[in-house]
Amino acid sequence: MEYNHEHKAERIGWIRAVVLGANDGIVSTASLVVGIAASGVAADHLFLVGLAALVAGAMSMAAGEYVSVSSQTDIERAELALEQQHLDENWTAEVHELATIYRKRGLDSELALTVAKKLMEVDPLGSHARDELGITELAQGNPLQAALFSALSFSAGAALPLITVLLFSVENLIPTIIVISLGSLVLLGGVSAHVGGASKTKAALRVLIWGALAMLVSMGIGQLFEVTV
């Protein structure tokens, strides 16, 4: 009978981008709108403030993810090029270096050397990339994909407080945005934990606590600098 099971690690890249983007979109936009609303600014300005936050935040997230993942990719490529140079210059030393890694993982010396030789016959650079440098295809990211996921997820998260501004009166706006945003954060944390196979309760509480703290601080600052427009 064939044994097959699924691992969650292959989802880490896009889960991280989506969760980070949506979480940031909800927290930053809701906090900004709550802070501005608490300062006494007229209600008709709040949507424009939130919309500006959505656009700026989405572009910032996209740029940040693209630069971050591109930098990681550049470093990995440079490391692989250097490792290929080592292989070309001193094959025997690289075989023993790989064998040493396997000995440290529990293989006896003879078996470790045999495994190292066999693996390097098939894929020398890939063997060293994986076992010496820790670089795998799973860990390598796509800059454009990360940027797109981050921008779209941020926009989706930021849209929640914006829709709330349009649908609710200014008298009930602050508590409504807080409740809807925190509820969305809890749902987001639970769903992301489920997809990744982690604890739903821990993930939900984590985003709930930090989201609530961000909004409370923003509201306090808004009330401190109360203005009339």
Rank of each mutant, 00 (worst) to 15 (best):
M1W: 10
M1T: 15
E2S: 14
E2Y: 13
Y3L: 15
Y3P: 07
N4Y: 13
H5S: 15
H7Q: 14
K8W: 11
E10C: 10
G13A: 13
W14K: 06
R16Q: 05
A17S: 13
D24F: 05
G25K: 01
I26M: 12
V27G: 06
S28K: 03
T29L: 02
L32K: 01
V34Q: 00
A38L: 04
V41W: 03
A42M: 10
L48F: 14
L48N: 11
G50S: 06
A52Q: 07
A56L: 08
A58F: 07
M59L: 15
S60A: 14
M61C: 12
V67L: 13
V67S: 07
V67F: 08
S71R: 09
Q72R: 13
E76I: 12
R77H: 15
L82R: 13
H86I: 09
L87C: 06
D88N: 12
N90K: 11
N90F: 10
W91N: 11
A93P: 06
E94W: 05
E94L: 07
H96R: 11
H96S: 12
E97N: 12
E97Y: 11
L98R: 02
R105E: 11
L107P: 04
D108V: 04
T114D: 09
K117W: 04
K118M: 15
K118G: 12
E121D: 12
L125R: 00
S127A: 12
A129M: 04
R130W: 04
D131T: 03
L133V: 00
G134K: 08
T136L: 05
T136S: 09
L138K: 10
A139V: 13
A147N: 01
A147R: 02
S150F: 02
L152C: 08
L152Y: 05
A156V: 15
L160F: 05
P161K: 01
V165K: 05
L166Y: 11
F168P: 08
S169D: 15
E171D: 13
P175K: 03
T176L: 06
T176W: 03
I177P: 00
I177Q: 01
I180F: 08
I180V: 14
L182D: 05
L185D: 09
L185A: 07
V186W: 12
L187G: 09
L188H: 06
L188G: 08
L188T: 05
L188R: 07
G189R: 03
A193C: 03
A193V: 07
G196T: 11
G197Q: 08
A203R: 03
L205C: 11
L208E: 08
I209G: 05
W210A: 10
W210V: 14
A212Q: 08
G222E: 00
Q223C: 10
Q223N: 15
F225L: 05
F225P: 03
